[in-house]
């Protein structure tokens, strides 16, 4: 990887420069929290944000999107194109960049998801270092670091950024839009110091030893009923999760009843109908089995396919769950709780 150093006061130049031929999406404030939204003025951007309400996935796979338009009379697809305009996701933390790599595994392998791919291919990623907050547990999954999946990554050294350039595109836009200089030994030493302090900042050190084994061995543990009784089955955890990718597909007819659109929306395994089949059978009828499935899939199902857990420890579900259920609590209970 190549590295450059950018003075902090020069950063608006980069955002302004990128804005000339991209839609720049970055963290801005909303009612005391933060959202990834289009930036019209570099001063709007809040690089001191802790986390956002929704993860960056919404810019690659929106909560609702039209997959195709159709004509009922001859069962014809009239249009299944989507135009992905050039975009920058600016200021993504390592957890969120890692989450996109996990989504890539699902949507870009096997049968490629063309909607995701079109947007992914046309999105530039500029990462930004962060400070651990009380709900973060990325350290547990090693997703507090990121080594690919971005074009530029900026580590905050106080008065300047240590810029890691991962791609030609990243190097090119940095060179074009902002004054930067070569890295000195002191810069790298300061970078190391910042990383060292960052690593000391985590408060959650949950024991994940042999988690897939525990998930199977304690599949019938009362732990699941305990959390199940608290669960509202509201699906908030899935919506705010940067790695949850499940979706539902529905047809919507125009008022003329002759044409319409096939639309997909984010879905959640916490909803009762999620695993129900046509004859009335529901494979996960009760709350606790649905809650369990979410963890089972994240920490074993996905792992069995892609060798990583489907969680980056961003803590959004912990913040979003009205009942305060969190992966940290669930894993701790599983480590401590009774076996079958």
């Amino acid at each position: 990887m190549f590295f450059r150093v950018v003075d902090k006061e020069r950063l608006p130049d980069l955002i302004a420069g990128l804005s000339s031929d991209h839609e720049v999406i970055g963290p801005i404030e909303k009612d005391g929290r933060f959202v990834f939204a289009p930036i019209s003025d570099p001063s709007q951007i809040r690089l001191d944000y802790d986390t956002t309400l929704l993860p960056p996935k919404k810019w690659l796979m929106p909560p609702e999107e039209t997959m195709m338009h159709f004509n009922c009379a001859d069962e014809e697809v009239t249009d299944d194109t989507v135009v992905a305009s050039p975009r920058v996701l600016f200021g993504l933390h390592p957890c969120d960049i890692n989450s996109l790599l996990l989504l890539d595994n699902v949507f870009l392998q096997g049968h490629v998801d063309p909607y995701y791919k079109a947007r992914r291919d046309n999105t530039l990623i500029v990462g930004m270092s962060c400070t651990p907050s009380p709900t973060c547990f990325c350290n547990v999954w090693d997703t507090d670091e990121v080594h690919w999946g971005f074009d530029i990554f900026l580590t905050d050294l106080g008065d300047r950024y240590y810029a890691s350039l991962r791609t030609v595109k990243g190097a090119e836009v940095l060179d074009r839009h902002v004054d930067s200089r070569a890295v000195t030994e002191k810069d790298t030493a300061d970078f190391q110091q910042v990383v060292h302090e960052f690593k000391q900042g985590f408060s959650n050190n949950v024991d994940t030893a042999q988690l897939p084994v525990l998930l199977d061995a304690k599949f019938d543990s009362p732990v699941w009923d305990d959390f199940g009784s608290e669960c509202l089955s509201c699906g908030a955890c899935s919506m705010v999760c940067p790695t949850c990718y499940c979706f539902d597909v529905k047809d919507r007819l125009e008022v003329d009843q002759k044409s319409g659109a096939r639309v997909r929306t984010w879905d959640s395994c916490q909803f009762k109908e999620f695993a129900a089949v046509a004859h009335g059978q529901n494979f996960r009828e009760d709350r606790s089995s649905r809650l369990k499935y979410r963890y089972y899939h994240k920490y074993w199902g996905y792992l069995s396919k892609f060798e990583r857990v489907l969680c980056v420890g961003c803590g959004r579900c912990t913040l979003a769950c009205p009942s305060g259920i969190s992966p940290v609590k669930v894993i701790e209970a599983l480590q401590a709780g009774g076996s079958r």
């Binding site: 009612d31 309400l53 089955s233 699906g235 908030a236 009762k272």
Partner: peptide, 15 residues
Amino acid sequence: GDPMCAVCKTKENVC
């Protein structure tokens, strides 16, 4: 049959 929270999250409302 599900409650409202999920869709509220997709609207990026602070709870």
